[in-house]
Design a protein around this nucleic acid. Sequence first.
DNA 1: GTCTATAGCTGGATAGAC
DNA 2: GTCTATCCAGCTATAGAC
Lengths: 208, 208
Amino acid sequence: MRPESRSMRESILAAAVQLFAQYGYHAAPLRDIARIAGIQAASIYHHYPSKQALLVEIMETHMLRLNASLEHILKENDDPLQRLHAAIANHIRLHTTYKEEFFIIDTEMRALEDEHRPYILSLRDKYEALLQELLQDGMEREIFRRSDVKIASYAIIAMCTEVATWFRPNGRLSVQQVNTIYRQFITEGLLLPPGVAAPMPDETAHLL
Amino acid sequence: MRPESRSMRESILAAAVQLFAQYGYHAAPLRDIARIAGIQAASIYHHYPSKQALLVEIMETHMLRLNASLEHILKENDDPLQRLHAAIANHIRLHTTYKEEFFIIDTEMRALEDEHRPYILSLRDKYEALLQELLQDGMEREIFRRSDVKIASYAIIAMCTEVATWFRPNGRLSVQQVNTIYRQFITEGLLLPPGVAAPMPDETAHLL
DNA sequence: GTCTATAGCTGGATAGAC
DNA sequence: GTCTATCCAGCTATAGAC
């Protein structure tokens, strides 16, 4: 594949990402994707066989990226809490960096045709299984509270994924701040421990 | 409005709920909605002015229901923890009872035309504001850990809303079980309190 | 590799009979 | 209140020139 060709391929994909995220797959006309990429609609078919192929490529690329990064974290860490912290940070980092792509993954599963849906779903299932493995291990080693592993994984994924919906790169909070807030919420919950209520908040004590 | 008329109105709406949830707004043809309701597509226009009107009515009805129930909870309770428990239970109850309707609210915001989107968004904002009021009050009264109120509200809403995606009425867990698991996760988090870490296994007790 | 032109279809919505 | 018939706009995708 020659460089000029690859460049146009990427321009088309970037335009598709933008419009799929903004209007949804079915509401985004191929003509508009072509216009943003700077060519005619028919020319897209030199680079991709169909509109559906654009959606599949967006979803596959980023689900593979997400899974590979979590597999790497599990391989490099043994401590359940370190693993969880790294997994949260990784999920939030990717969902803010590739915010539109993951928003599409989160909202356009139904737009996948029967031919491709099982494959993309299997990638999503794989991610859930990796996180559940992390949680199960942490519970067996008495680091995490024993709870329903599946529901815990769904809850963590849902709240960390939704960051892709509202996060703004130049908004009130940085990625690092969002990460810190989510980490504490997931590990410690909302409730103040009854006895420890008063003087020094844990999260600032170590700064002194 | 005569009874026969209202009945067909509801049949049409129910069919729209089913197909919007299953295929998405843009991918659900009006002809299919009509077929499920047992009439011809053109007859729908006697009951609703447009396809868009079906979507708006579904979203409005259930967002109003959700807001009214949370307002009622805030009025009837004063204790922050009781309020939070009631809010979680209420959110999960509605999102499992009207699972398709809330799934549509969660995934088809982009399908709203400019004329109606601000109104539906204002209802969603209202719900977030009510929950944030609950959280803010609980933090000021030293019941909840001080944290970012907006993010905490987004996290709680995201995880409790996603129940509408995977919950199955005759599945592994009852609504009550799901509610209990979520309640503990939100208030206490995943981590076991270090001191309270259960009876110590014999082979590690000597390390203390 | 990109273009113009258009095929082929499907969709929401309307007209007007009954 | 529901029907049949149809308009017409919009879409994805293809054909074939350059």
